[in-house]
């Protein structure tokens, strides 16, 4: 197997970029982005329990421009991963695996996750003037 001379299967670069490929890749990328956030989530729970400067500095961090951008990014990651995850539940049930249907549902996932992100942030700002 080590030095097989059999032809290798073509990899990504050979294919024209399809929407379904992009959606699939984004599912993994958004998941990994949220994994980075898990370290901060864990620290948030610890800071909440211990109090003191830790929680105050976390609040400052999340309130800063960089923190807000990161939170906005994670919101999108969550909605995208969530919507596409639900799309995958249908695939698992054998529903919507045809190419045309998968393309339509993939487009729907992209639009829905973008819209939900904007709506969530609008709601947060209107309710209390900042999240």
């Amino acid at each position: 197997m080590e030095s097989s001379s059999r032809p290798l299967s073509p990899h990504l670069q050979v294919y024209r970029l399809h929407l379904t490929m992009v959606i699939s890749g984004l599912h993994r990328i958004t998941g990994l982005c949220m994994v980075i956030g898990l370290f901060l989530l864990s620290y948030w729970y610890v800071a909440l329990a211990l109090g003191g400067d830790r929680y105050a500095s976390l609040q400052w961090l999340f309130g800063s421009a960089l923190g807000q951008i990161a939170l906005f990014g994670w919101t999108f990651c969550l909605f995208f991963h969530l919507c596409n995850g639900i799309r995958h539940f249908f695939f698992d049930a054998g529903i919507g695996t045809e190419h045309a249907t998968a393309r339509v549902s993939g487009t729907a996932v992209a639009f829905a996750s973008g819209l939900l992100t904007v709506l969530a942030w609008l709601a947060a700002y209107m309710l209390q003037g900042g999240a």
């Binding site: 898990l38 864990s42 610890v46 909440l48 329990a49």
Partner: peptide, 15 residues
Amino acid sequence: SALLAIISILAVVRV
């Protein structure tokens, strides 16, 4: 991941 989960859960229990 197990360690982070345990730390987070312990923090919730403490609260």
